[in-house]
């Protein structure tokens, strides 16, 4: 079987298209590269969506944590503590068990004027359930980063905004928030990289891979188990993830440039990629 044929069969296997059966014997390098690459789609899906939605919740959490009101600050602090203080692996297991316990045929919401049946079955599937966990997890980690940045917004900036008569939402949107993002960006880039790394945990932690549609590491593990040779599939995953990491650094670097474009060039913070690993 030629490599083109393999590519057609397995390039979108992780999404359920193409050949149904995974290769069983005589594994070629081409098959391993194609299948593991096809699994990478899921890593990018989990990482990108969790990062996107998490960004907004993280901003809200950071602002809440900075609030003077006790009722707002305490929940934010607890949210951050619970999700940053416990392993993501345990969070996945816990969430999966909780989702499984939800009633199978949906929750009947009895509103006064109408009945709504909330479907819950989809939450036990990895594409939704794991995404929820990753979303909350990254919101907590980035919330802490944003909170730190929020605390270090220069006092002079706020005073200048006051002098211009800005207050409340306008001041936040035009002065505080952009400065907060600018200060937090290098740390947030690290968070993005390690969120993508964390997506490899999904199929090893309770969430079953339905019809063998898994992520990159799921397929790599499949090959390693079948061939009993870890020296080929795992370096392939490593190769793909190095590519993803470089892409993130490039993309976030562009945003960093834009956030800092008003600064004198020698003051611009450079992106420094430092390992701040596992959750």
């Amino acid at each position: 079987m030629s490599c083109v044929q393999t590519f057609q069969d397995y390039a979108f296997r992780s999404l359920g298209y193409g050949e149904r059966l995974l290769p069983r014997s005589d594994f070629t390098l081409c098959e391993q590269f194609t299948l593991i690459g096809s699994g990478l789609v899921w890593n990018i899906y989990f990482g990108a969506l969790a990062l996107f939605f998490g960004f907004f919740l993280a901003t809200a959490v950071a602002v809440a944590r900075n609030s003077g009101a006790w009722v707002v600050r305490k929940p934010a602090e607890w949210f951050i503590f619970v999700f940053r203080g416990s392993p993501l692996f345990i969070q996945f297991f816990l969430a999966y068990q909780a989702f499984v316990l939800l009633p199978r045929n949906g929750i009947e919401l009895n509103l006064i004027f109408t009945h709504i049946t909330a479907e819950t079955g989809w939450l036990t599937r990895a594409w939704a359930g794991a995404l929820v966990v990753l979303f909350l997890n990254t919101a907590a980690y980035s919330g802490e980063i944003f909170y730190g940045a929020l605390r270090s917004v220069p006092k002079g900036d706020i005073e200048a905004a006051d002098a211009y008569g800005m207050a409340g939402w306008t001041r936040f949107r035009r002065i505080v928030w952009p400065t907060m993002l600018r200060l937090a960006w290098p740390a947030y880039t690290n968070e993005a990289i390690f969120l993508f790394h964390a997506t490899t945990l999904v199929y090893f932690s309770g969430f079953p891979a339905w019809q063998q549609k898994g992520d990159a590491l799921y397929y790599a593990n499949y090959f390693a188990d079948k061939t009993f040779n870890p020296f080929i599939p795992y370096p392939i995953v490593a190769f793909y993830f190095i590519l993803v990491t470089l892409a993130i650094i490039g993309l976030f670097g562009l945003i960093n440039r834009r956030l800092n474009r008003h600064m004198p060039s020698e003051n611009r913070p450079r992106l420094r990629i430092r390992p701040q690993v596992i959750r």
């Binding site: 590491l217 995953v237 490593a238």
Partner: peptide
């Protein structure tokens, strides 16, 4: 090496290797 590669890959790889 730890910067670009997910740690769990190492956890699966190192013991078998």
């Amino acid at each position: 090496m730890v910067r670009g590669i997910p740690d769990i890959v190492f956890f699966l790889f190192v013991p078998v290797a």
